[in-house]
Amino acid sequence: MTEEINLTIDGIPITTRAGTSVLDAALENAIYIPHLCHHPDLKPVGACRLCGVEIDGGRMTMSCLEPARAGIEVVTESPEIALVRRTAVELLIANHDMDCLACAAATDCELLRLSAHVSVQSERLERLKGLTELKPVDNSNPFFSFDPNKCVLCTICVRTCEEIQGVRALALINRGYETVIGTFGNKPFIESVCESCGECVVRCPVGALAPKRFQKPAREVQTTCTYCGVGCGLYLGVIGDRIVSARGDRERPSNHGQLCVKGRYGFKFINHPGRLTTPLIKRNGEFEEATWEEALDLVAEKFSQHKGDSFAALASAKCTNEENYLIQKLTRAAMGTNTVDHCARL
């Protein structure tokens, strides 16, 4: 059992686990402290400078980096904190391509949340010099795009790729205002070692990394990914009978919300007109639709004509462990051969 500690945030008594950051403690207790580079799955970096707090009357410090300690008194607003937050948010917005209507993050954008929090006023923004020309958008990846004009350089994508995926496809490139997120040699995403898992896309707090042709689903269906035996939990987003999105189920122990490229983006086949929906049996050189009974009867009949080494089985990685167990059982016990293999070994 992790030790529980008590502290106060803006005078409100809070209980949290030792080792939690002040920021997480606040967020868990429904106290919003502005933040942009923080993500619960990642190590804190203190880069956005928005989550400043004052602890026990001390100087401003970043709450994402401060461990919650027993008895401390945290204040989330002071003239200095407000100055830093307002400066940072106004500068971010002035340098952001405010293409909100067509933005995939429109309904869940940290920048809009921040803007509301500091009450950004357009007459103040007008004083600032903003984007003068837009950088090209990287559309090379078939599943998602990267728009540097919306990027806030929180590095959540970089850290996700490094800390969670271990791929390190992304890094910060250049210095100063020219700093961008990029791949090795700043090549298009598709030419990099990126595996298109989309973990960065999910975590992007703004619409810089966004799924292509994003549509917000009308409802979500909890299910299990059929691509392999891991059994990742996912929510398929549906409009009518059409699947428009997929997201990982953070509660599922097999994947804790993570998905690979197939589970996250490989759902288009479901509504594809060319998809097989019934078994086909070749009769007189032509495939004809058949029922499952017909098809299974045919297979059983054909199998019964073979025994021993004239038979071999190749199982699929899309099957579960249990299904793969059964196929080897069938091969050995019923078909009388040990010639059984698996596609993932090839």
Binding site: C48, T87, A88, N95, T155, N174
Partner: peptide, 10 residues
């Protein structure tokens, strides 16, 4: 500027 933190970069 290294580009890491918002106030300095922007």
């Amino acid at each position: 500027s290294c580009g890491k933190c918002v106030p300095c970069r922007l």
